[in-house]
Design a protein around this nucleic acid. Structure first.
Length: 278
DNA sequence: ATGGTAGTCCGACTA
């Protein structure tokens, strides 16, 4: 637990799009408890702050920060290793959407166990001709610029960009590339935006521990996609160089997608090794 | 089984 310069304890970090925290609170609580995670980034809580079941998480030992403005979107951080410097925007100029335009509840960040953890719910895009699509690309570029700025200011920063990126970065990350022809999540501009995050220094820390093809984090509720193993890999933990260097393991908890009342996304867990004093 | 989603607040939107 020492926070002396250079010294950090091991951390188990998770990200999970829960597709409504209220509709499946029992499942979320049970998963958090049995998974022994220190920090959890939740997306699609689908509630306002006053509706978020903070007490239930506090009762099992977690500090809570939630950002929700309506029944849509909504992101949260749970932490049992500290939760400080909470922010609900990664930049002063995060793109807006809607009428009237607003900054939606798609990001929350905090310092947890010496790591700057962000829970991110990237806009879906909806369609290549939909206004939501350029919004998605602008939102990702805003995130990239913010992240590049953090690393320019401190190349040793420990940053984890966790969440549902709504992008399948390679053809191995969808069950059938031809099915997605003309759809979002696989288009070149989206993949370029994801690649720009990598180029800025934020690398996918899970893939080395969960190689594909056929390894996914999301399966549509429709068309029996899960039992047919027809999924997409769209949920990620992107680590800064200093954070990526500490990753000792990662898993996609496909079991949690099973059964009645499952989210359509599986939780993703990353293990960060302790870092001795510099 | 010749089929087959689920969440929000209540007909339609979102994913």
């Amino acid at each position: 637990m020492s926070q002396r310069a250079g010294s950090l304890a091991a951390v188990r970090l998770a990200t999970w799009n829960v597709n409504s925290v209220r509709a499946r609170l029992d499942r979320v609580l049970a998963w958090v408890q049995r998974s022994d995670v220190d920090v959890v980034a939740l997306q699609e809580t689908k509630c306002k702050d006053a509706q978020f079941p903070a007490q239930a998480f506090e009762d099992i030992g977690y500090a809570v920060a939630h950002h929700g403005l309506s029944q849509w979107n909504g992101v949260a951080l749970l932490s049992r290793v500290g939760l400080a410097d909470v922010r609900t925007a990664f930049a002063p100029d995060v793109p807006e959407f809607g009428d009237p335009p607003v900054v939606e509840a798609r990001a929350i960040g905090a310092r947890c166990g010496g790591v700057d953890v962000w829970s991110l719910y990237v806009p879906n895009g909806r369609g290549l001709q939909d206004p939501h699509y350029p919004y998605k690309l602008a939102w990702l570029e805003s995130l990239r610029a913010a992240g590049a700025g953090w690393l320019a200011a401190d190349p040793a920063a420990q940053v984890a960009l966790c969440g549902d990126f709504n992008i399948a970065p390679t053809d191995d990350d969808v069950w059938d590339r031809t099915f997605f022809e003309g759809l979002t999540h696989v288009s070149e501009p989206e993949r370029a935006a994801f690649g720009a995050l990598d180029a800025a220094g934020f690398t996918d820390v899970v893939r080395p521990h969960a190689p594909g093809p056929g390894v996914y984090t999301y399966w549509d509720y429709q068309q029996l996609r899960f039992p047919k193993r027809q999924g997409m890999r769209i949920d990620f933990v992107l680590g800064s160089p200093a954070l990526a260097a500490r990753v000792s393991g990662a898993t996609i908890d496909r079991e949690e997608r099973k059964g009645k009342g499952a989210s359509d996304h599986a939780p993703v867990v990353v293990e960060l090794a302790a870092q001795p004093p510099a």
